[in-house]
């Protein structure tokens, strides 16, 4: 279920999909990231990717991202294995 990023109850270590404009959070247009912490009101992602190939670590979520939803099992699987391969 998609929610607003502000005030969302994130779980550390969980994978989320973020979208700037689409409440549907379509996987292919989203930023995927593992929630780490919130610093001064900004979400910090331990690992993040847009294409499941290039991964960045310790990335602060851009303020432009307004929508978030938890990943599905299939998305978690794809992230998990691609991160294992390409990181």
């Amino acid at each position: 279920m998609t929610m607003r990023v502000e005030g969302y109850d994130f779980k550390v270590g969980e994978l989320y999909l973020f979208s700037s404009d689409s409440p549907e959070c379509l996987a292919e247009k989203c930023l995927w990231g593992i929630y780490d912490t919130t610093e001064r009101g900004r979400v910090k992602l331990e690992v993040a990717t847009r294409d499941l190939r290039m991964f960045t670590v310790n990335q602060l979520l851009d303020r432009g991202y307004h929508f978030v939803r938890p990943s599905t099992r299939e998305e978690l699987r794809d992230f998990c294995f691609n991160y294992g391969f390409f990181a």
């Binding site: 270590g13 969980e14 994978l15 593992i34 331990e46 690992v47 099992r73 978690l76 699987r77 992230f79 998990c80 991160y83 294992g84 990181a87």
Partner: peptide
């Protein structure tokens, strides 16, 4: 594997990384 088991598996990968 269930979603939780997948998540645990990922957690182990992260620790390894």
């Amino acid at each position: 594997a269930s979603r939780q088991e997948l998540a645990d598996f990922m957690e182990r990968q992260r620790n390894l990384s």
